[in-house]
Nucleic acid binder design. Structure first.
Length: 430
RNA sequence: GCGAUCGUGGUGAAGUGGUUAACACACCGGAUUGUGGUUCCGGCAUGCGUGGGUUCGAUCCCCAUCGGUCGCCCCA
């Protein structure tokens, strides 16, 4: 086999696609109740959107982007995440001028990151995400977190852990940054290579390092929480108050540092604690980004959002053995054997049933009657209609209920009506 | 980018330096000349990831390459 899907991509075949649809519908239902509206942005953007939106110092921009030049010599990039695109769309379409503020958006989108694939990490991945633009109310932070937790809970997940932190506002961040550099500078030689560069570019991420996590200096490092100014501290407290009154359990982790440059104030991650989930446990991550819109040329507008990995969501459902209710039954299968004329009548019958709202299929491989019944059986068909030479002549069709094996004769012209009645009479059909 | 491991038919999987590569499931057909889920019988046509090398001979040995899986970094 020479034609293969590119590395890090997968085909989602019908059996799995049904699960995706199920989860998507559940999530859309939650979004609707939270009064979020869908937004769809392009699959690719000018590279600059991500360089400025996500941040030049991030791993995503530095080594994970699918960037290419189009025929006009423009540098374009397949989106590696959702927030920058939505922010760009917000600015470009002047949504800040919409009387309905804040603007509450959600999206389902493919993302692309050039990485080595492994469990829960693909080069093309799917995310459900949410962005709220135009409000700096801590209740919005709580609402966004609530939305994420609600979707997980309604899908049946139980082993969840919500971790939150505050990165503070610009002033707090700068003060903390200085303190961090001062703290780690004397130990610089003892830290790993990555951390040595992090120290100058983004010292916050040193705290996140797993190689040096046991270094003594790590434990005595200044916590961001101690450097929050009054305003930032109060903000963070408010967010926690709201979470508590909504009965959302959380853990504060001062070392939670999100990888993207644009975050400030609230940062959070939701992880799965289900056994056998694999090395990667983060299901969703997000945070507040109050300077981003301005950075992209819009007015000073606060924002917050999260991205939720769809593949990881399905993995988590699997890890917790949550059955997804899938209806793979078929209303009706038309079995036809005989002359060309029989096939014509059968084809017309199938069409008529379908336009009358009935789910129907038939054989297209010239199988024998037995084979056609097997096919009907394989497709969990509730009813089988048999048409052959005899039926053609008498204009009476055999309607067989597969489960009971009962069979009745129905005049061809009444068939749609009768099948409809039977399906409605039988319970469980929607 | 680094590391480990694997790569046999539609699927799951045995296997060996040497004329016909098991078995199971699935699928199709027949027994039952127009009725399924059980049973029995039969069929499934140059194939052992790809390219080199060693050898009289390689699916099996060596090298390379591609790909899958898992892990590191980082993240969804």
């Amino acid at each position: 086999m020479s034609m293969k899907a590119p590395r890090g991509t997968v085909d989602i075949l019908p059996k799995d696609a049904a699960k995706w649809q199920y989860a998507e519908n559940k999530i859309k239902n939650v979004c609707n109740r939270f009064h979020f509206k869908e937004i769809r942005t392009p699959l690719f953007e000018h590279t600059e959107v991500f360089q400025r939106g996500v941040g030049d110092s991030t791993d995503i921009v530095q080594k994970e982007m699918y960037t290419f030049e189009d025929r006009g010599g423009r540098s374009l990039t397949l989106r590696p995440e959702g927030t920058a695109s939505v922010a760009r769309a917000f600015v470009e379409n002047k949504l800040f001028g919409d009387p309905d503020q804040p603007v509450k958006l959600y999206y389902f989108a493919q993302m692309f990151r050039y990485e080595r694939p492994q469990k829960g990490r693909m080069r093309q991945l799917n995310q459900f995400g949410v962005e709220v633009l135009g409000s700096a109310d801590p209740a919005v932070d709580a609402e966004v977190i609530d939305l994420a937790m609600t979707t997980y809970k309604e899908l049946g997940l139980k082993s969840l852990k919500l971790v939150i932190n505050s990165l503070g506002d610009k002033e707090s961040r700068n003060n903390h940054r200085e303190a961090l550099v001062k703290h780690f500078e004397p130990h610089k030689e003892e830290l790993c290579n990555d951390c040595q560069t992090r120290l100058s570019h983004n010292p916050l991420r040193v705290l996140d390092c797993k190689t040096d996590r046991d270094h003594p200096a790590m434990k005595t490092a200044p916590s961001i929480l101690e450097y929050l100014n009054e305003e930032s501290r109060l903000y963070f407290e408010k967010v926690q108050e709201y979470l508590t009154l909504m009965d959302i359990d959380y853990v504060v982790d001062a070392n939670l540092v999100r990888g993207l440059d644009y975050y400030n104030h609230t940062a959070f991650e939701i992880m799965s604690e289900a056994p056998g989930f694999g090395a990667i446990t983060t299901l969703a991550g997000g945070g507040r980004y109050n300077g981003l819109i301005e950075e992209l040329g819009g007015p000073n507008t606060p924002g917050i959002g999260f991205g939720m990995g769809f593949e990881r969501l399905l993995m988590a459902l699997d890890a917790e053995n949550i059955e997804i209710p899938l209806d793979d039954s078929l209303d009706c299968f038309v079995v036809a054997t005989g002359s060309d004329q029989v096939n014509k009548v059968a084809t017309k019958l199938v069409h008529q049933l379908r336009i009358n709202g009935i789910q129907v299929d038939k054989d297209y491989l010239e199988r024998k009657m037995k084979g056609q019944f097997k096919a009907a059986n394989r497709n969990n068909s509730k009813y089988v209609l048999v048409i052959g030479e005899e039926e053609l002549e008498s204009e009476i069709v055999n309607v067989k209920e597969m489960e009971s094996g009962e069979q009745v004769e129905v005049p061809l012209k009444n068939i749609v009506e009768i099948v409809k009645q039977k399906l409605l009479g039988g319970k469980g059909h929607e």
